[in-house]
Write a protein that binds this DNA or RNA. Structure first.
Length: 461
RNA sequence: UCCCGGGUAGCUCAGCCGGCAGAGCAGGUGGCUGUUAACCACCCUGUCGGGGGUUCGAAUCCCUCCCCGGGAGCCA
């Protein structure tokens, strides 16, 4: 089928050229002798204006060209005499692939709430908002690979089904081929040796441990894939299924890690500005939670750094009343993170060197014996967007931390092997892809930045 | 899981100290030769989230369940 994407037509088209475009009708405006259709094909934020003269045979087909109808239009591209668009198509023929009954089609020629659109997830990508968000998501996904590949990182594919139940990153989904009818809810008494893998298996909560052994052989690697958490989290920033990016670098320390994280976010902003200006401009206009100027600033301004201990001192000085106590040794609460990003630093901030007791066993113990070489990247509006660390490469220290934190060695001997044979300093971080998309697009609810959100009691589509 | 706030026409919402269920938009019909979420006129639209209770009478008061949103915890 001969067709041109509206995006390339608007960028590279020439007046007078014969064109053929396919898409979905956004609006139709008609009077007795002339009609206009705004056509969108998903390739770009912009619609293409179709002009149908009353004398054209295509005019009779207009009754089927209601909002939502899929059509093909052929005609001649012309410079538009009216304001609002560069080009328009003087239509000679229309083919209707599928009409959309205006009495029942849920999308109207007006704004809908995001809550309503969540109920019609199969149709919401046809709206300006979700078209914009999903195109930005694509720009970001592509830029992730571009960034790492450009730096010589190797994309590695860590498993989705894992036997490792001790990653400490939260509740996991069990994967089983056993008859569900015969399983009790808490899996008590289930003999997983009779299961498909001969032992209990889970959906991964992180590819980090596996990425570590790939880094300890291939140098610089990254993962980018789906991740699962079975936590009963009901918030605007949690999903049960989300995409995570986890770079892991051999021969690297926390400083290298922080530098990579910062460079990474800045690069992504640059690409969105280059390729998604129309999308960001639209989101800015309707929601005002993102802007081209804001992303430009983010792409240029260095992130601020503060140690956990200094952050505690900063919070101590605050005149603001906090619900949760501020005390060295306690984790930062949402309200504390928000205070740091929104009031103190007014932008992204990297908090480093957390107390060892509140961080994972694999994080490298600092020389003070009290803190670990960890970093969290906090951003306004969302909070933690990345978490990373230098990994503990010293066998003795690692085993001692595992013992203290009651992490069983069983099943992790391979992880310890990496410290027995050719161990080296290494570091990495995890970035929640949807939180990144949220931050860049300014969408408040994480369920609006992924086509099919999975959350407790939510698995439609 | 906890704490708040909601659920009334296809959508957004008013009505809530009990007394005939409403508006705007959408949709339909007609009009209009350059519109931009077109405009103008007329018309249509209901399991008031489900169940139970109080009452002569419940969208409105009480109980309960379900769903949605915001916040918190867990985290990315």
């Amino acid at each position: 089928m001969e067709r041109m994407q509206i995006k390339s037509l608007l960028s590279y088209g020439n007046s007078g050229q014969e064109v053929s475009v396919c898409g979905w009708v956004r609006t139709r405006r008609e009077s007795k002798g002339i009609a206009f259709i705004a056509l969108n094909d998903g390739s770009t934020q912009d619609t293409l204006q179709l002009v149908i003269a009353g004398t054209s045979p295509a005019f009779r087909k207009l009754t089927l060209c209601n909002t939502g109808a899929a059509i093909k239009a052929t005609g001649v591209l012309k410079d538009s005499p009216a304001q609002g668009q560069k080009f328009e198509v003087e239509v000679s023929g229309i083919e209707v692939f599928g009409d959309a009954d205006p009495a029942s089609y849920p999308l109207q020629k007006k704004g809908h709430t995001l809550e309503f659109l969540r109920e019609i997830g199969h149709l919401r990508p046809r709206t300006n908002t979700f078209g914009a968000v999903f195109r930005v998501r694509n720009i970001l996904a592509h830029a992730v690979h571009e960034f790492f590949q450009g730096k010589g990182f190797i994309w590695v594919h860590t498993p989705i089904i894992t036997s490792s139940d001790c990653e400490g990153a939260g509740d996991m989904f069990t994967v089983t081929a056993l008859d569900p009818e015969k399983l009790s809810k808490d899996c008590r008494g289930v003999d997983f040796s009779q299961d498909f893998f001969g032992r209990r298996a889970f959906l991964t909560v992180s590819g980090q441990l596996e990425a570590e052994f790939l880094a300890m052989s291939m140098g610089d690697v990254y993962t980018f894939g789906p991740t699962f958490r079975a936590e009963n989290s009901n918030t605007s920033r949690h999903l049960s299924e989300f995409w995570m990016i986890e770079p892991e670098m051999a021969f690297a320390d926390l400083k290298d890690d922080m530098q990579l994280a910062e460079e990474f976010v800045r690069f992504l902003c640059v690409r969105v500005l280059e390729k998604g200006e129309g999308e960001i401009a639209f989101l800015d206009k309707f929601y005002k939670n993102t802007s081209i100027a804001g992303l430009k600033e983010l792409s240029e301004k260095p992130f601020l750094h503060i140690s956990y201990s200094d952050a505690i001192r900063e919070l101590d000085k605050a005149t603001e009343k906090f619900e949760f106590p501020v005390k060295w040794g306690l984790d930062l609460q949402s309200e504390h993170e928000r205070y740091l990003t929104d009031k103190v630093f007014r932008g992204p901030v990297i908090v480093t060197d957390y107390p060892e007791k509140i961080k994972a066993f694999y994080m490298r113990l600092n020389d003070d014996g009290k803190t670990v070489a960890a970093m969290d990247v906090l951003v306004p509006g969302i909070g933690e967007i990345m978490g990373g660390s230098q990994r503990e490469e010293r066998l003795e220290v690692l085993m001692e931390r595992m013992q203290q934190m009651q992490v069983p060695r069983e099943g992790l001997e391979w992880y310890l092997d990496l410290r027995r044979y050719g161990s080296a300093p290494h570091a990495g971080f995890g970035l929640g892809f949807e939180r990144l998309v949220q931050y860049i697009t300014g969408m408040h609810n994480i369920r609006d930045v992924i086509p099919c959100p999975r959350a407790p009691q939510t698995i439609k589509f």
